[in-house]
Amino acid sequence: MSRNLWEHDHPYYCAKGNYFASPDKGMHTKYDSWTAFHADWGDNDPDLNLVVRWDWERPDPADYKPYGEAVPPDTLAVYWVLQRKAILRSTECVVTEADEPAVREWLARRAQTIADVWSPFLAAAEGATA
């Protein structure tokens, strides 16, 4: 069985929003739940709205409990290139462990789109390691 999505630590990090747009331009949108996020972004065209990265962010309770603070919920950050308009943007939604199967299924469909973009190189890399 593969690891849970919150167990993946991607190299480096990605800034939320868009470096070239002021915060009031709406380049980072937050949602209170996976359901709310999916209502806005779930069925959009994956070619026009290319997911280039995702991070399931799980806060470390040790950073909050010594101060008597509540541990924030897990969030899913998704980083997009809206290709037709060359827009970089991000979204973030609260997620729970119960959301993982739906999140995993959605991300798998998005991964196929980016794999298709890189397929000439992926096929060459697979041949080189075989």
Rank of each mutant, 00 (worst) to 15 (best):
Arg84Glu: 00
Pro72Phe: 15
Leu82Gly: 13
Ser22Arg: 13
Pro120Asp: 05
Asn4Trp: 11
Pro120Gly: 14
Leu82Ala: 11
Asp116Phe: 10
Thr35Glu: 07
Asp9Ala: 11
Glu57Val: 00
Asp45Cys: 05
Ala15Lys: 15
Asp24His: 14
Glu92Leu: 07
Lys85Val: 10
Val78Cys: 06
Ala124Ile: 07
Ala62Lys: 05
Glu7Thr: 11
Leu88Gly: 04
Ala62His: 14
Pro73Ser: 09
Tyr79Ile: 02
Pro120Asn: 08
Pro23Trp: 14
Glu126Ser: 03
Asp9Gly: 11
Glu92Phe: 11
Asn44Phe: 00
Ala77Cys: 11
His28Cys: 05
Phe37Pro: 00
Glu7Phe: 13
His38Gln: 12
Asp116Pro: 02
Val51Glu: 03
Leu122Ala: 05
Tyr31Lys: 10
Ser22Asp: 04
Asn18Gln: 04
Cys14Gly: 03
Leu82His: 15
Gln112His: 09
Met1Gly: 08
Ala98Ser: 12
Lys85Met: 14
Arg104Ala: 01
Arg104Cys: 05
Ala36Gly: 09
His38Cys: 02
Val51Ala: 01
Glu7Leu: 14
Pro11Glu: 05
Trp6Arg: 02
Pro72Asn: 08
Thr75Met: 09
Ser90Glu: 05
Asp63Ala: 08
Asp74Arg: 15
Arg89Asn: 00
Trp80Arg: 13
Lys65Ala: 15
Thr129Asp: 01
Pro61Thr: 11
Asn49Asp: 05
Ala108Trp: 08
Ala102Glu: 04
Ser90Tyr: 01
Ala123Pro: 13
His8Lys: 15
Pro59Thr: 06
Ala111Thr: 07
Trp34Gly: 03
Arg53Asn: 12
Lys25Tyr: 12
Pro11Ala: 13
Trp6Cys: 11
Tyr31Thr: 10
Lys16Leu: 13
Gly17Val: 01
Ala124Tyr: 12
Ala62Arg: 12
Trp118Val: 13
Leu50Pro: 01
Lys85Gly: 03
Gly17Phe: 10
Thr35Lys: 10
Lys65Leu: 12
Arg89Asp: 06
Trp80Ile: 09
Val78His: 11
Val78Pro: 06
Gly127Lys: 12
Tyr79Ala: 09
Asp43Tyr: 01
Pro101Thr: 12
Lys65Gly: 03
Arg109Thr: 14
Thr113Trp: 06
Arg89Gly: 10
Arg89Gln: 15
Gly127Asn: 15
Asp99Lys: 00
Tyr19Lys: 07
Trp41Gln: 03
Glu92Ser: 07
Ala115His: 14
Trp80Ser: 02
Trp34Tyr: 00
Ala62Thr: 06
